[in-house]
Amino acid sequence: MKMITRPAMATLSIVFASTAYGFGGACIPLTGVVQSTPDGACTIRGAQSAWSGSELPDPLLADVLPSSVPAASLCFTVKGFGTAQFSGSAGLTTVLAGNRTPQGEFVPRGPTPLTFESGVRAGLTSFTAQTVLTGKVFAGPKQLSGKLYTKDTGTITADGKVAEILKIVGGTKGFAGATGTIAIAGQELGGFAVYTGEICPGQ
């Protein structure tokens, strides 16, 4: 398996929502910027042990690959900047990927990460990750807070540019039962990436 040269981690930003949005099932639009940095301590391991998402956590690459692979290339800390503040941890994971036939049969191709070997896609690697964040969402006078759990799928270039989809799979307190999808694009590691999407509270 080819290693990711400058892996990106998955993140979610929790941001301001206008007073037009409330709770009780209404989805709140999200937009902003996010930044991640390598985490040699691999903090996601501790956060994952208390995972309360609707889907079980995936195996971390930091626990699957040889100890000679530095954790700082596989685990990350996350910070969001904008009208709300949030922070958390993330880690690259290994998940079985494949294709579906016209008959709906799943044909496995291998575990992530997956790297294109040649051609115009050479240097692109598909990856999976998971993230645990602590933060707040505001909607007028109302506020949601707690931990949020996401499972993430993306592609990264050799120079660290990322395109990524985050699936919200629940959380704690105000984010219990939350769903939603976030798209991220940009220089997430060592720079800034832009995200757009929505969170749909479960309460």
Rank of each mutant, 00 (worst) to 15 (best):
L144Y: 03
I4M: 15
G186Q: 09
P57R: 05
P108D: 08
P102F: 03
A10M: 10
D58V: 04
G22H: 07
V64P: 00
V120R: 15
K147L: 14
I44V: 15
K136H: 12
G180V: 06
T125I: 09
T172C: 12
L148I: 15
G98H: 03
G171D: 05
F76M: 06
T179S: 15
C75Q: 02
G186T: 08
V194G: 10
Y149K: 05
E198T: 10
G24Y: 10
A90R: 00
T37G: 14
N99R: 12
T83H: 05
G110L: 08
P102C: 06
L133H: 05
F175T: 04
Q143D: 11
S87L: 04
G46H: 07
T125Q: 13
V95Y: 00
K151L: 11
G160M: 04
G170R: 06
A158D: 15
S67E: 14
V169W: 03
P66S: 10
T125M: 10
A26D: 14
E117Y: 12
G171W: 00
S18I: 06
V64D: 02
N99D: 13
Q48F: 02
I184A: 13
R6G: 07
F138P: 03
T31K: 12
G190S: 12
P141K: 08
F175C: 10
L61W: 01
A193I: 02
F192S: 14
Q103T: 12
A20S: 13
T94W: 01
A41T: 15
L133R: 04
Y21N: 12
E55Q: 14
Q103C: 08
P201R: 01
Q85R: 04
G98K: 03
A26M: 10
L56R: 12
A163S: 15
G91C: 01
I156L: 07
L12H: 05
G40P: 07
L56W: 04
K147R: 11
G177V: 13
A185P: 03
L12G: 08
C27E: 14
L74K: 01
K151V: 05
K161R: 13
V194C: 05
Q48P: 02
A129F: 06
T134I: 11
A129I: 06
Y149D: 04
G160T: 03
G119K: 09
G22D: 08
A72F: 03
G202Q: 03
P57N: 09
G202Y: 02
V132R: 11
D63S: 15
K136P: 03
Q48H: 07
A129R: 03
Q130W: 10
T112R: 02
P70H: 07
M1E: 12
T112C: 09
R121E: 12
L189F: 08
G170V: 07
L166K: 09
S73I: 02
I4Y: 00
T101M: 05
Y21E: 09
L144N: 02
V107T: 14
G154F: 01
G88E: 00
Q103Y: 11
I156A: 15
G98R: 04
T157C: 13
T93K: 02
S73H: 04
G154W: 00
D58C: 07
K136W: 11
L92A: 04
S67R: 09
T150K: 00
T93H: 02
E55H: 10
A139W: 04
A50Y: 09
G202C: 08
I165C: 05
S68T: 15
A139M: 13
G119T: 09
F16C: 09
K167S: 15
V78E: 01
S126G: 11
S18V: 06
